[in-house]
Simulated scan of single mutants.
Amino acid sequence: PNPSVCGETVTVCATVTAVAPGSGTPTGSVTFTAPGGLDETVPLATDGTACVTTTTLETGTVNVSYTGDSCFLPSTGATDVTVDPATSAVTVSVDPNPSVCGETVTV
């Protein structure tokens, strides 16, 4: 999803296609890079697509680089992503509860 929440699993996909007058389906691999440490090279599927799944994505730009093959030149693409902060919760407990005046308690 875009936007996503910090720590949420996100799938990023790229499709490499021929530009006319060229035809056919590119082969090879693409490299995904993005803030948060995403740096993964993935082979293209037979339809020219490649996907990665990550939980470390941060707000910024996802860049994809295609390495090219014997018939297609290298190329790049990019898209902006937004990763919002996750909601947090604080739980407080007292032990023992109830206690008596002067008794040591753990909070």
Rank of each mutant, 00 (worst) to 15 (best):
P96D: 10
T9E: 13
V62H: 02
P35H: 03
P3T: 05
D47H: 12
C101R: 06
S99G: 14
P43H: 05
E103C: 09
A14P: 00
V42D: 06
C71K: 14
S4C: 02
E103L: 08
T41N: 05
T25M: 13
D84I: 00
N63R: 05
T87E: 13
T33Y: 01
A50S: 03
P26M: 11
A20W: 10
C6A: 13
F72L: 14
T61R: 03
T46M: 09
V62R: 04
D39F: 10
S70L: 15
A50K: 00
P1M: 07
T76D: 04
S29A: 15
V52Y: 02
L38R: 02
T41Y: 06
C6Q: 15
T33C: 06
G28Y: 07
V10D: 00
T49D: 08
L44E: 03
V30S: 03
L57W: 02
G24Q: 07
T9C: 03
G68T: 03
T104Q: 07
G48M: 06
V90L: 15
T106G: 12
V105H: 09
C6L: 11
V94I: 15
A78V: 01
V100G: 06
S4Q: 03
A86T: 13
V92E: 11
T41D: 04
A14Q: 05
T17R: 12
T67E: 14
L38W: 00
P21W: 08
S93F: 08
C13M: 03
T55C: 02
L44P: 00
G22K: 15
T31G: 01
G37W: 00
D84A: 15
S88A: 13
T27A: 13
S88G: 14
T15C: 11
G68R: 02
T54K: 04
T67Y: 08
S99N: 10
A18F: 09
E40V: 05
V5E: 03
T54H: 02
D39I: 00
T56D: 15
P35V: 13
S93G: 09
N97A: 11
E40Y: 02
V94S: 12
V5C: 00
E58G: 10
T33D: 06
A45R: 11
P21D: 10
V81L: 06
T27P: 00
G28P: 11
V94Y: 10
C51R: 05
P1K: 04
V90P: 06
S93A: 12
T55K: 02
V105C: 09
D84V: 03
T82W: 01
T67I: 10
V52W: 05
F32A: 01
T91L: 12
T67N: 13
N63E: 05
G28I: 07
L57M: 06
P3Y: 09
S75L: 04
A45D: 13
A18P: 12
A18R: 04
P85R: 05
V52F: 08
F72W: 13
G77F: 08
C101E: 09
V12M: 04
S99T: 09
T15P: 02
T15E: 14
G28R: 04
V105E: 11
E58N: 08
N97T: 08
P3D: 04
P26R: 08
T25S: 12
T11F: 04
D84L: 15
G48H: 03
S4D: 00
D80M: 04
G24P: 13
P74I: 10
L73N: 12
C71F: 14
T15H: 14
G77N: 11
D80W: 00
T104H: 07
P96S: 06
A14W: 03
T106F: 06
S65M: 06
P35Y: 10
V90Q: 11
